[in-house]
């Protein structure tokens, strides 16, 4: 490319960029990577003439640490239910009172008044899901609705099991499997948990996040996993199935909050209201592959999700699900020690 052709190109680029800047407002979203539907964002941009910018994070801890430092320029973040109370307690988010918003009537009753944000004064549901056991039925045909796949691995799966290294999730599962309560600090039980984890580890091949690709390639034949990830795996490989452990499985929910330091508060509120619309919520689900807590979104959901057992919890499994909580710092410190010992 010589200068003659470059100059007009640069001119065009400049024109385009000023065109964008002329949109009526901005909205800066800080969200998990690969989690935000571009189609829904485009619809929001067109409807409200707002330019949306999305920045990725990879863990609740990263997001919390960064927002704590301040000066991020973000208007919206999407922390998990375990972290929401911390964000509220530390004054990082503002009370936008979503319960008074126009679309709030669509929020499913079981998600309208959650323990982590009583009365929904701060948060709007983005997605929720479950953590269970994924098994490749070509490798193992026995019953798989149990954490025993992970903690007491059947012979066919020995050396082929992966565990997603989320400390909180693994501790939750292990405690459930041994009949305890989540966030327990009962030392006698935790000692059993520790011994069980250490004894189970030789049967695991890895502790990795990248399950979709590895299950697909056959490097893993079973793994602990999130339901949306399991759905993607089954759609690509029909022999891979998600199971709800009968000993108790964890549930989580990610929620949209408006930051205290937000510069575009009105746009952020518009966005909170916008995603509680059933069609938009279904649009988000179609991309991130998780359920959305908005009643009436079912009819807009993609066909492969409408009756998917990963998304719609079967009636017999439902009673075993439990929303995961944030454990106290002292309990967390105990868990970190067990976790370090497990991975030494």
């Amino acid at each position: 490319m010589n200068w003659k052709t470059t100059a007009p190109a640069i001119g065009l680029a400049l024109l385009a960029s000023t065109g964008l800047a002329r949109a009526e407002g901005e909205l800066n979203i800080y969200n998990w990577g690969n989690y935000t539907s571009p189609d829904v964002i485009k619809k929001f941009e067109e409807k409200y003439k707002v330019k949306v910018t999305i920045t990725d994070y990879d863990s609740n801890d990263t997001a919390l640490a960064k927002v704590r430092q301040g000066g991020t320029g973000f208007d919206i973040a999407i922390p998990s239910q375990t972290y929401v109370p911390i964000w509220i307690e530390e004054g990082l988010v503002q009370e936008t009172d979503p319960s008074t918003m126009e679309n709030f009537k669509n929020v499913a009753p079981e998600w309208a008044n959650p323990e982590f944000d009583p009365g929904r004064k701060f948060t709007v549901p983005w997605a929720w899901g479950t953590i269970g056991v994924v098994v490749n039925t070509d490798a193992y045909k026995g019953p798989a609705d149990s954490w025993s796949i992970i903690f007491n691995t059947p012979d066919e799966l020995k050396g082929k099991v992966n565990v997603v290294p989320e400390m909180g999730d693994v501790m939750f599962a292990a405690i459930m499997y041994l009949g305890g309560e989540q966030c327990t600090d009962d030392k006698a039980l935790l000692k059993k948990v520790r011994d069980m984890l250490v004894a189970a580890k030789p049967n695991w091949v890895a502790m990795e996040y990248n399950t979709i690709e590895r299950m697909g390639a056959g490097d893993f034949k079973a793994t602990s996993d999130w339901n949306g990830s399991a759905l993607r795996q089954r759609l690509a490989h029909p022999e891979i199935h998600f199971n709800y452990p009968k000993e108790g499985f964890g549930m989580w929910s990610d929620n949209v909050v408006v930051l205290k330091e937000a510069k575009n508060v009105e746009n952020a509120k518009l966005f909170q209201n916008f995603i509680m619309d059933p069609e938009n919520a279904a649009g988000l689900s179609a991309f991130h592959r998780y359920a959305n807590a908005i009643s009436g979104s079912e009819k807009y959901m993609p066909d492969d999700m409408k009756d998917a057992p990963e998304v719609v919890i079967p009636a017999d499994a439902k009673p075993h699900g439990e929303l995961q909580k944030m454990c106290s710092p002292e309990t967390q410190a105990l868990y970190t020690k067990i976790w370090t010992e497990l991975q030494k």
Partner: peptide, 17 residues
């Protein structure tokens, strides 16, 4: 495969989870 930590992973654990 993240099963056994090295120092880098141990440090990351303390700043993260």
């Amino acid at each position: 495969g993240g099963k056994n930590m090295m120092l880098g992973n141990l440090i990351e654990l303390q700043f993260g989870q």
